[in-house]
């Protein structure tokens, strides 16, 4: 059943691309043979993946298959984890982020590739300051009030908070906090927004609001979203990448990319059996 080359044990050479692989000209982020280690532990192996501009790309897959790990590679947030190591290259607009020359420009990279986390993480400052912080530290020269308002409007939060901008960001509800975090990410005017299960702590209504929001944001930004919610992936995303995890001979578990294609294809006619099983909920 599993004749595809990617499921065979690691042989050391570059794998042929998985089914559905496209080397589109419009890719803003290109992962080439990316493997991530935590110490000597290989968490993700040999991922080839092109993230296309102004599309929403969903990462799906069972727990522990390395979705968050791969996502953190795109803004080099893995640099902060002791012992984490990334092999291969990730090109952002054609330039390898893991090149030495980016070592001292990493803050600029992170401004242009924003991130929203699973748990809402508002700073314990006022709502206004939460938005203004990113702009300030990155040397924003424009009108701050206007930027705050625009970001909050884009995140569909303005009407709810416009009268209490001075209040603490922590005083908002969970759903509002998450939209505040999205507004905060937008405020530094990134090209890409990475989202790691942004709705998993939210109620269905807040989730729908954020999904609507994603549709609007995609006009301006490229979005990569990790989700465990199949309906969400099929509702919001244009492209879907399915990851899986397999045991290694050393007793560890290693994640890899199984299939990457347009979302309709992944959900209606996937090429791999394991993808079909996973998206239909029949997954062991």
């Amino acid at each position: 059943m599993k004749q595809d080359p990617i499921n065979q044990p690691l042989s050391g050479q570059i794998k042929p691309p998985y089914s559905g692989y496209t080397s589109s000209k419009e890719a803003i982020l290109q992962a080439e043979k990316v493997s991530v280690f935590y110490g000597s532990y290989l968490a993700v192996r040999d991922v080839f993946l092109d993230i296309e501009t102004n599309k929403i790309t969903a990462f799906i897959g069972p727990s522990g298959c390395g979705k968050s790990t791969l996502l953190r590679c795109f803004n080099r947030l893995n640099d902060l984890i002791l012992g984490a190591r990334v092999e291969g290259s990730i090109k952002f607009q054609g330039e390898n982020l893991y090149d030495k020359k980016f070592d001292r420009k990493i803050e600029e990279v992170r401004r242009r590739i924003g991130m929203v986390f699973q748990k809402p993480t508002p700073f314990s400052k006022s709502i206004y300051e939460n938005i203004a912080f990113g702009a300030k530290i990155n040397g924003y020269q424009g009108d701050m009030d206007e930027l705050v308002e625009r970001s909050l409007r884009q995140a569909a939060l303005w009407d709810e908070v416009k009268d209490k901008l001075k209040q603490s960001g922590l005083s908002l509800s969970g759903g509002q906090q998450q939209r505040l975090c999205i507004a905060r990410a937008i405020a530094v005017q990134p090209d890409v927004i990475l989202m790691d299960e942004p709705c998993s702590a939210l109620d269905p209504i807040s989730t729908l609001r954020i999904e609507d929001l994603l549709h609007e944001l995609k006009e301006q930004y490229t979005i990569v979203i990790v989700t465990h919610n199949m309906q969400q992936a099929s509702r919001v995303s244009d492209m879907t990448a399915f990851f899986n995890v397999e045991p290694t001979d050393k007793g560890g578990r290693m994640g890899y990319l199984v299939e990457y294609d347009r979302t309709e294809v992944i959900f209606q006619s996937p090429k791999e059996e394991s993808t079909r099983e996973y998206v239909s909920g029949r997954f062991g």
């Binding site: 990279v109 924003g114 993480t121 990113g134 530290i137």
Partner: peptide
């Protein structure tokens, strides 16, 4: 919480900016 530091870094803050603005006041 370290999630606060990560959130700061993800916006492009340097270590000192994260400490001064978010970690130290708390």
């Amino acid at each position: 919480p370290s999630s606060l530091r990560q959130a700061g870094f993800a916006l492009g803050a340097t270590r000192w900016q994260v400490i001064r603005e978010h970690v130290f006041p708390l």
